[in-house]
Simulated assay, not measured.
Amino acid sequence: MIVNSVDDKLASALALAIVRRPRATLQEIAKSAGISKATLYRIAPTRKAVIEMLLERATGHLQDALAKAELDTSPSIAALSRLTANVVKGRAFYLFWYHAQWVRVMDDKGDPSQLYHSFFSDALEKFFLRGQEAGVFRIDLPARWLAMAYDSLLFSAIDSAEAGRVAPLGLESLVEKTLLAGIVAQSLPADVERSRIAPR
């Protein structure tokens, strides 16, 4: 099996097929991706091989997104913006990777907290800690929490776009505005007590 022999369009379709039906058979995966079982068999002869191929592609996508964002060296807000754009660009792989982690934990009857200790979440935590030290991010919130909040927003936005609940155009802005500006209006009605929602 040669991972690079499958183009991104087909790999994305296969990834989404498995995200939508995690227990789908090889034939069901092929049908959902719009190809024949014979074609899929030539790419990867077993369901396990398809998943391994896609997990490698998805892991590579996230590693590439982290590298291009330059989280360790660029100004925090610009780096975060690049990371979001890079992940969204290959959002099918991110969704697959996210779902694969859940399936792995459930199949192994493992601790769900393992989901928050991957190369991706660890890189995010390190990034937010660096931003806190630079005075960009609030220090009254743990860096681990900021990493989890961002990752959850990213997943929710991408998952919602794939399900048709939100428009796919502008996902980056949706995530960044919610994370960085929050959900409270800049100009509140006179009868709203700002002290109730002000950071403590």
Score class of each variant (00 low, 15 high):
Asp122Ala: 13
Ile77Ser: 07
Arg194Lys: 15
Glu193Leu: 08
Leu83Gln: 01
Glu133Val: 08
Gly135Ala: 11
Leu188Glu: 08
Ala79Gly: 06
Lys68Met: 14
Ala33Cys: 08
Val105His: 03
Arg20Ser: 10
Leu129Asn: 07
Gly34Arg: 05
Ala198Gln: 11
Leu171Gln: 04
Leu141His: 07
Val87Ser: 00
Asp7Gly: 03
Glu133Ala: 08
Trp97Thr: 04
Ile139Lys: 14
Asp108Gly: 08
Ser5Ala: 15
Asp191Arg: 04
Trp102Ile: 10
Arg144Ala: 15
Ala134Pro: 00
Phe127Gly: 01
Ala33His: 04
Asp191Tyr: 11
Ala24Arg: 14
Arg196Val: 09
Lys177Pro: 05
Met1Tyr: 09
Ala30Gly: 05
Ala13Thr: 05
Ser113Thr: 13
Asn4Gly: 09
Thr59Cys: 03
Leu83Val: 02
Ser36Met: 05
Pro112Cys: 12
Ala24Gln: 10
Phe120Glu: 00
Leu115Asn: 13
Ser173Cys: 09
Leu174Gly: 05
Lys68Thr: 09
Ile158Ser: 08
Lys177Trp: 06
Ala65Gln: 06
Asp7Asn: 15
Ala143Gln: 05
Lys48Met: 10
Thr25Gln: 13
Arg23His: 15
Leu83Cys: 02
Phe119Ser: 14
Phe120Trp: 10
Val19Ala: 03
Asp107Asn: 15
Ser121Glu: 12
Gly164Thr: 02
Leu83His: 00
Ala38Tyr: 09
Lys126Gln: 14
Leu179Pro: 04
Phe93Arg: 10
Asn4Thr: 09
Ser32Val: 02
Glu28Thr: 14
Lys89Trp: 04
Leu26Thr: 13
Gly34Cys: 04
Leu180His: 02
Leu66Lys: 10
Ala190Gly: 08
Arg200Cys: 02
Thr25Val: 14
Leu169Arg: 13
